[in-house]
């Protein structure tokens, strides 16, 4: 809910260890409100650049809004260093397998559900590659009551782009989407390009899924990232409003 000036605020945030894919111990940034009462949870799936400041700050933002929020380090197994160093490790490894990311995300969901103040309602959100992984996860589990795909690239894939790490195009899993979906996209984005968003939307319609897509003019890829040039203040603020409304509706 929006903050009121007579409200006493409190959040706790820290790095925790969670059981990820195959039970592997991985780090996660976990933030939650200190107010008593049960709270819904949100799992954030970080983007390709890694477990970055933007994602830590977005996790805090969800906690301030009254959600228990968690963002797992999807590059944990590659090693440790600065976020930049680990990005190079990820490139050297040729990316991380989809199945591992989905497993780590479900591990983060289990961690939230195991907390004594969990309401039992969970959402999932991610941007860029994390938007794609959000969609994959929502198509492969029933853990979530709502999913938000922020400009996820690679939902639509050419057959020649499939490989051992990315064996199935997410769009081909649409029949199994298990919860309502919010999609937010920039019309100047090239990955996903508007025609790919059209294909994605057509698949959702074909399978009768509960979804809403919002497409912004004057915005490209990553327009929520206030620390990067693609940031677009007006579109980002409107988009965040859509995210809050969507989660309030489905996770209450």
């Amino acid at each position: 809910m929006p903050y009121r000036t007579d409200q006493t605020e409190g959040i706790l945030a820290e790095t925790v260890m969670i059981a990820g894919h195959n039970g592997d111990q991985i780090r996660a940034f976990y933030a939650r409100p200190t107010a008593p009462g049960r709270v819904p949870g949100v799992v954030l799936i970080h983007h390709a650049p890694g477990w970055s400041d933007w994602y830590k700050e977005a996790t805090l933002r969800f906690a301030r809004r009254g959600y228990a929020a968690i963002c797992a380090n999807l590059y944990e197994r590659l090693g440790h260093g600065t976020v930049e160093d680990v990005l190079v490790m990820m490139r050297a490894a040729g990316g991380v397998p989809d199945a591992q990311v989905v497993g780590d995300t479900l591990g983060a969901a289990r961690y939230l559900k195991a907390q004594s103040n969990a309401s039992g309602k969970l959402g999932v959100i991610g941007s860029c590659s994390g938007g794609r992984h959000t969609y994959l996860t929502a198509c492969q589990s029933n853990e979530f009551a709502a999913a938000v795909d922020l400009w996820g690239g690679g939902v639509v894939m050419k057959p020649e782009d499939l490989n051992d790490k990315r064996p199935v195009a997410p769009i081909d899993m649409t029949a199994n989407l298990s919860c309502p979906l919010l999609g937010i996209f920039g019309n100047e984005d090239r990955s996903p390009a508007p025609d790919q968003v059209d294909q994605h939307e057509a698949a959702l319609k074909q399978h009768g899924k509960d979804y809403e897509f919002h497409r912004y003019d004057g915005a490209g890829h990553g327009f929520f990232y206030y620390d990067r040039p693609p940031y677009r203040q007006e579109q980002a603020m409107d988009g965040w409003g859509k995210v809050w409304t969507f989660f309030e509706k489905h996770l209450a």
Partner: peptide, 9 residues
């Protein structure tokens, strides 16, 4: 990495 274009040598 939405492009997923990575090579190494």
């Amino acid at each position: 990495m939405c492009t997923n274009i990575m090579e190494q040598t």
